[in-house]
């Protein structure tokens, strides 16, 4: 036996990115705008979707792909609001994945009602790092950060706060109780991702959720203008 050096020079995420592009092409063909919704576990992704989509009359027809670690609790919550939802189980019998990748989304493609929707929102697995690395074929990414997590999160997890077009600051109804300083958060966010749009909301009380709805409703046109 002898050793041979093989030149590779390949992005370790190339394989994922190739599948993500294929997903994107499929979504484009059906005229579906895709949003990747990311956050730490429990920041309020599902609650925000319930709020934003339950009184959603005009605007794009929205479907949801739920990337839960296990079970279908989040999907059931949304189905309750008459939102078309497809469950993607990343459970491998041992708890499941820490993020969605392009191939998992690809595996759900046939189950998605792409002809009946204009927008697909993919709720990623709750995780503050890994989802930033794996594109799934989305047009835009939303990062939810709740005030309960503290004002220093952008500094600690710059990868995620840089990899998004919108930051939703959730649970503002709890601000007094958790000692969260909004200016400090915005200052750190600006250092990590200068100029990114941020919207303070309470998915619980509904405060600010209208602005998220408007942002979503305007997204298909914005994406088309760039393309």
């Amino acid at each position: 036996m002898h050793r041979v050096k093989v030149r590779v020079v390949e992005d370790a995420l190339d394989a994922n990115n190739t599948i993500a592009r294929a997903n994107r092409a499929d979504f484009d063909r059906h005229g579906v705008t895709v949003v990747n919704l990311m956050s730490a576990p429990g920041s309020g992704k599902t609650t925000l979707l319930e709020r934003a989509l339950s009184h959603w009359h005009d605007g794009p027809r929205v479907g949801v792909l739920e990337g839960d670690v296990a079970g279908s609790l989040d999907a059931d919550r949304l189905a309750h609001h008459h939102v078309p939802v497809v469950q993607l189980n990343t459970d491998n019998g041992f708890g499941g994945e820490c993020h969605l990748d392009a191939n998992m989304v690809r595996s759900a493609m046939d189950a998605l009602p792409l002809d009946e929707i204009d927008m697909l929102i993919i709720e990623n697995v709750g995780n503050l790092v890994c989802p930033a690395e794996f594109r799934v074929g989305e047009d835009a990414r939303i990062m939810v950060s709740s005030v309960a997590e503290g004002a220093d999160k952008p500094l600690k997890y710059p990868l995620m706060f840089r990899a998004c077009e919108l930051v939703v600051i959730n649970k503002i109804d709890l601000i007094e109780h958790v000692d969260f300083d909004m200016d400090t958060f915005l200052y750190h966010l600006d250092a990590v991702h200068p100029g990114v749009t941020s919207l303070p909301v309470s998915a619980r009380t509904g405060e600010g959720v209208d602005a998220v709805r408007s942002w979503l409703a305007a997204l298909p046109d914005r994406v088309r203008a760039v393309a």
Partner: peptide, 30 residues
Amino acid sequence: PAFRCPRCGGGDVTVLSGDELEVESIEVEE
């Protein structure tokens, strides 16, 4: 993680290096 320009304060910044994640080569037994 400080992505604003320290000279003019601008936020339109490009990453020149530091965001690679690349398998450069492997050595295999033959």
